[in-house]
């Protein structure tokens, strides 16, 4: 018990130290900017680029401090043990239903983790969701197929699925042959995946990650074979296609929240709270900016118009 408490406090101290270091750097820059002269933004940018600290990027430093501070604050708040209320996501609630249906029908489950590499944060979020899907599939003894577009993603997916099988208490059912690398070429990958969809007719299809033109090709093929389809992406241009053709879609930030939500870890859930606080600040900033700009239209020479212009040039570029 004591050891657990000691480890917990050490981890909190480590988090606080890292957070302090991460916040200290932009803070120093913000202070440095305050000491600098008030040149025009363009002139300041040129002068600042030659100095050691890029003072022209002070506003961004402040924004980073606020957002990161909010997220870290959320995590630390979660560690105090306060209850965290997170809105349920219908798409995630449908995961069990979709895999259960596939099991009953004796068909496979298809998981497509997008077409980007592990450098894309969406792929990382997709792999986290894959872990949860794989665990449920292992519990139900459903066959899960994961074709990947990048070899590193394949390695990460294999790790996640294997870990899920261990967690489900069924390590013997793990088959790494079901997680394959196909090709880096976007449409070559689409041809291979849609071809296997038409041949194998999976009963549940998950599309979680970064998608581009292939989103509709996957979703329409999935629709034609009557599969339950659950998608999640942070590519705004592809969201309409998934919404039109899939049963459930995780839209933008929901997708990132989902990976934390599914992990069930308090730290990760706390970060969602911090993220929400950041969103609240963004909404407040937008409202204040709109209000100032609107009032400024009626009194273009007044202090409010000047304030609106200053905010616009400082934060808006």
């Amino acid at each position: 018990m004591m050891r657990e408490i000691r480890e917990r406090s050490r981890s909190t101290m480590l988090l606080a130290a890292t957070a302090a270091a991460a916040i200290a750097i932009p803070c120093c820059i913000a202070l440095a900017e305050g000491a600098g002269d008030a040149a025009t933004p363009a002139g300041a940018a040129v002068a600042a680029s030659d100095s050691v600290v890029r003072t022209d990027r002070g506003p961004l430093a402040i924004a980073i401090v606020i957002v990161c501070g909010a997220v870290i604050g959320g995590i630390m708040l979660a560690r105090t043990g306060r209850p965290l209320k997170i809105r349920r996501l219908a798409a995630l609630d449908a995961v069990d239903e979709a895999i259960g249906r596939a099991t009953e029908m004796g068909r496979s489950v298809l998981f497509v983790p997008g077409i980007q590499d592990m450098t894309d944060i969406q792929t990382v979020a997709g792999i986290t969701i894959l872990g949860r899907v794989a665990k449920t599939a292992a519990e139900y003894d459903a066959k899960l197929e994961v074709p990947t577009c990048r070899s590193i993603v394949m390695a990460a997916a294999r790790d996640a699925v294997q870990a899920a099988h261990f967690e489900a208490g069924r390590p013997e059912t793990y088959n790494e042959g079901n997680i394959n690398y196909l090709t880096d070429e976007q449409f070559g990958y689409v041809a291979a995946v849609t071809g296997s969809m038409v041949r194998d007719k999976p009963a549940a299809c998950f599309y979680m990650g970064a998608f581009y033109a292939e989103s509709l090709l996957f979703a329409e093929n999935g629709n034609s074979i009557g599969a339950i389809q659950i998608a999640g992406t942070a590519e705004p241009s592809q969201l309409p296609f998934f919404v039109a053709a899939c049963d459930y879609t995780l839209i933008g930030e929901e997708f990132f929240a989902a990976s934390a939500y599914l992990s069930g870890e308090r730290d990760q859930l706390g970060s969602i709270k911090g993220q929400d606080f950041g969103k609240l600040l963004a909404v407040a900033a937008i409202l204040i900016g709109c209000l100032l700009a609107t009032v400024g239209v009626f009194a273009p020479e007044g202090a409010i118009a000047h304030a609106a212009e200053t905010i616009k040039t400082t934060f808006g570029g």
């Binding site: 957002v67 997220v71 979020a125 990132f256 934390a260 992990s263 990760q268 993220q275 969103k279």
Partner: peptide, 15 residues
């Protein structure tokens, strides 16, 4: 904001 939070979770080793 989602990307920022997720990146921070990764950098801090939480995720």
């Amino acid at each position: 904001l989602g990307v920022a939070a997720t990146s921070l979770r990764l950098i801090l080793g939480i995720d």
